[in-house]
Design a protein around this nucleic acid. Structure first.
Lengths: 335, 335
DNA sequence: TACTTTTCTGGAACCGGTTCCAGAATTCAA
DNA sequence: TTGAATTCTGGAACCGGTTCCAGAAAAGTA
């Protein structure tokens, strides 16, 4: 592999001059520039980015920390990140997290070793110590779908979304409304908890008493959601509508309904949350939280912060839309 | 940020000794090691990976080139890559490609600039020139879901898969079998073409004449597949079964059937290809091509190649399984 | 005790770029 | 013709690690 010194020797110039040509520095005469370019061509030379990184202190790389790509919502956010980053000169290193300890180790190391110029964190809220570390580090950090007062973040108002979904069911005439979700306490971001709060608020505002039997939570995943839905459907007084904490779980509810012959939306209305593609495929009514856009926004804020550190953390809230599809219907009293 | 020289000064040793401690070199006495570790602790020192990369010549990074994450199959393969890579000391830089020119520019630059130690290419076949470049470069390269005689690859036998799917329909009694897919010629890997070949072979081996009216191809995507399926269903003599080039298209076929009141599988059997999660959700019969495993295998071959360059390119073929679900049924002659 | 061997250590060179700074060559003004 | 300003250029230092190599200290052997 030829180095800058080989080029300099061949072109009969100093290495500083070659470097100037590489960086389009105007203070090089046309003649020498041509000679250098010819030498570069002749040797098929490419500058070594690592050496450049060491001397400039910039890596032109952004680190993205996110959970394993097990949930479509992570993928959709990542897609937005990737797309926005492609317009910049930055590359992206992916750190995917399968466990809290893995997360903590990335949170600890990444802001210190100068591997990346900026950090994006998706759906993984740092604790106070960790946030402090990120804030103190000279590496800008942006949270997507996670909140900390000390850091820039792109946020979704899950409480509002939960309210929106529940309100939709109420306005269709439902009063026996279940909330089915992940565990409300998790090591990762407990969005289910906020959505649950929205659910409770909507009930309250409409004077509908909360029935504890209609609230169920458990392990994530479609299979488990199906089991939980079966439990709900087998109650003596089953709900007429189920609001699931996310789209995958809503799809699990649809599975349960299909298997036990409960007709959707005739006998049961179902609402999900997220707005992933699967929701579209399954014709599911859901809350669209603009996952893709959250990735794009995160990148844009990060890129700005790389130029000029904001003296106070920025916060951006994404809007939410109810998408009414085929799994919800006006409640009709039957037999 | 403290450097190795700060640590050396504080610990009253040479920088070489600090480096030895960092790299667990055994030829350091316990006493000095302790002193160095204390200094590292006191200064909260972390070695700069970029500097290390420059002097060792290893970046401990693998580059992954793949199409934009628009298709679930890419995500699933990436998931396998990510998982396998997590077990190693390598990080992953993602290069996603949205156009042939973007692909070509990555293909050109990545093997030359020493940004990564190894390269994984997913679903993007290089041409002869490009493959030559990769093969000549000292950076090992592995293709996943793409073939070139000069490079290691992880392959799926699409012809065989196409045959398998068609055979399944034939053995259920179908004889009017459509093949619906992407364009057979694309700038990316034309897997549809090979699957089509398998389809033709299966017909031929079973003495079923090929009906050109039953072969349709067009733009990728679910919406388009729906349109194509509508065309097929409106033929004077419509097919009793449709084999779609991939699962997303098969789901588009299901959409079309639902909308026009064609009952699946009673009136129409549908088979997809890929084995993505959506196929499971939609209860689709499909060919599972072990997407996740292809990523894992690619990483393993690459990691081995980083240690010892294989003198001749390795090839690994993944198996294929028919997963019979609810969208295929024995053909029953009606009215 | 003298000599060899082993263990441990530090200086210096190196990886391949960028950039500061001083100086040569040219142009311009008086 | 001389001095000042301007334009180019190259040497050397620097980024922060790793590693070669030589030498000091300790241990082992005769």
């Amino acid at each position: 592999m030829p180095t800058i010194r080989d080029v300099a020797k061949l072109a009969n110039v100093g290495i500083a001059t070659v470097s100037r040509v590489l960086n389009n520095n105007p203070s090089v005469s046309d003649e020498t520039r041509k000679a250098v370019l010819a030498a570069i061509e002749a040797l098929d030379y490419t500058p070594n980015p690592i050496a450049r990184q060491l001397s400039t202190g910039r890596t032109l790389t952004v680190g993205v920390i996110l959970p394993y790509l097990t949930m479509p919502s992570y993928v959709e956010r990542l897609r937005g990140v990737q797309h926005a980053l492609a317009e910049t000169e930055y590359n992206m290193i992916l750190f995917s997290v399968g466990s809290p300890s893995e997360r903590d180790s990335y949170f600890k190391d990444l802001p210190r070793n100068n591997l990346v110029d900026g950090i994006l964190i998706i759906s993984l809220p740092p604790n106070d110590n960790q946030a402090e570390r990120f804030a103190r580090a000279e590496i800008p950090t942006v949270l997507i779908d996670a909140y900390h007062s000390q850091l820039c973040c792109i946020l979704t108002d899950d409480v509002k979304g939960g309210k929106l979904a529940t309100q939709h069911l109420i306005s269709l005439g439902h009063r026996k409304i279940s909330f089915l979700s992940d565990f409300l306490e998790t090591p990762f971001r407990p969005s289910a908890r906020y959505r649950y709060q929205g659910y409770r608020k909507a009930l309250e505002e409409n004077g509908i008493p909360f029935n504890p039997a209609y609230h169920i939570s458990g392990e994530r995943g479609r299979e488990n959601a199906k089991k939980m839905a079966n439990h709900l459907l087998n109650l003596d007084d089953p709900p007429s509508a189920i609001f699931a904490g996310n789209d995958i779980q809503a799809i699990g509810v649809l599975d349960a309904a299909r298997e036990s012959g409960v007709k959707v939306p005739d006998d049961l209305s179902v609402v999900g949350f997220d707005g992933i593609r699967d929701a579209e495929y399954t014709n599911l009514t859901t809350i669209d939280q603009h996952l893709y856009q959250s990735g794009v926004d995160g990148v844009n804020i990060l890129i700005d912060a790389l130029d000029i550190r904001p003296e106070t953390p920025l916060e951006k809230r994404l809007s939410l839309n109810l998408i009414a599809r085929g799994t919800t219907q006006t409640f009709s009293q039957k037999t």
